[in-house]
């Protein structure tokens, strides 16, 4: 264990921990944009700078390992001035369109601009403009809002193992690019979207469906494969506006394309909305009472005619435990046969 002092408070961390991690452990707030707890440190945004006694210049706390006896100061007028300058530089090249941005209210950059009171900007000047829209159906890439924090690049490489994007060009021309600037063609897991601190990366299907302040967040479990990732359905009215996942669950907030972007079947116009009974080869709408009574009468009649083992029940790996339990109970105890199965084998 290493002992160090941060803002006059002593703390202990394991060897290899960074100064930023030590500060977080103490509950000391240091602003960051590029740092993400699940990704390797980058040291790109320079917001997390701190003063260390005996070191003549500020250090990025996210890339500085904690050392024995270190004395760290996280906030001084000089540090705050530098942070403000960094923010001013970022904002000087960022569209002022929080009014229409999907991310407003849930944007780290907006939050920092708010807390540092960034109304004026000494660096107003040329801005990067990117007219071309990426044609992929899942992820909206608005490069004008990109602050080049590199989180998306890192998550794609380190978590997803795909490396579909990287930094390209230098200086003012620097941007996050796909190979040869083609349209994005990747696994579309949207991990990049989930870690983007600004509105540069959002879901194409999210547009105008409701900002974070308007949605109701419902924690549930994904309905696709057997991995069972934790999902948060962001609901506005009776519609799912988007799907996110919490970082503090076992799946650490990571999802796949189906879980993150495959939810629109819920509101499909093809959904069945009323019970149907087939009459003369055609489906006719029926009430619940009529349909349930007819179904049970016919099932009991066939049971009476051929015996219970002429009845079969196919339950579902898509339904809940409770539904499966009750289904097999009905087949076994209600109809008197063990002919119940589901598609586990398929």
């Amino acid at each position: 264990m290493i002992t160090l002092t941060i803002d006059g408070k002593k703390t202990q961390v394991v060897g290899g921990a960074t100064v930023l991690e030590a500060a977080r452990k103490l509950g000391v707030y240091i602003p960051t944009l590029c740092q993400h707890p699940k990704l390797t440190p980058f040291g790109g945004c320079r917001l997390c700078i701190v003063e260390v006694k005996g070191v003549p210049r500020p250090l990025a706390s996210c890339t500085t390992p904690a050392a024995e006896g270190m004395e760290v100061t996280t906030s001084t007028p000089q540090l705050e001035g530098l942070r403000k300058t960094v923010l001013e530089l970022i904002l000087s090249d960022h569209p002022d369109d929080c009014m229409t941005c999907e991310k407003a209210g849930n944007c780290t950059l907006q939050e920092l601009a708010y807390s540092y009171g960034m109304r004026e900007n000494r660096f107003r000047g040329e801005r990067r403009t990117y007219a071309k829209r990426d044609a992929n159906p899942f992820i909206e890439r608005d490069l004008e809002k990109c602050i080049l924090c590199g989180r998306c690049v890192k998550v794609c490489k380190e978590v997803q193992g795909v490396s579909a994007i990287d930094f390209a060009y230098r200086g003012f021309q620097a941007k996050i690019s796909t190979p040869f600037e083609h349209d994005l063609n990747c696994e579309f897991c949207g991990q990049c979207v989930s870690v983007c601190p600004t509105g540069a990366l959002t879901g194409k299907g999210w547009a105008k469906k409701g900002r974070q302040v308007e949605v109701n967040e419902v924690d549930t479990v994904c309905g696709y494969c057997g991995v069972g990732c934790n999902l948060t359905l962001n609901v506005k009215g009776n519609e799912i506006a988007r799907v996110t996942s919490r970082e503090d669950t076992w799946n650490e907030g990571w999802l796949c394309v189906k879980g993150r972007f495959g939810y629109k079947f819920v509101n499909s116009p093809d959904r069945l909305t009323t019970p149907l009974i087939k009459k003369d080869g055609k489906f006719v709408e029926a009430g619940w009472d009529e349909a349930l009574q007819y179904a049970t009468d016919r099932l009991m009649e066939i049971k009476g005619k051929y015996g219970p083992d002429a009845i079969g029940g196919l339950s579902s790996a898509r339904c809940t435990n409770e539904e499966n339990y009750l289904f097999q109970k009905i087949i076994r105890a209600g109809f008197g046969t063990n002919n119940v199965d589901h598609c586990a084998r398929l």
Partner: peptide, 8 residues
């Protein structure tokens, strides 16, 4: 002779 299929 009669099959009840739930979600399959």
């Amino acid at each position: 002779k009669a099959l009840y299929i739930m979600g399959e």
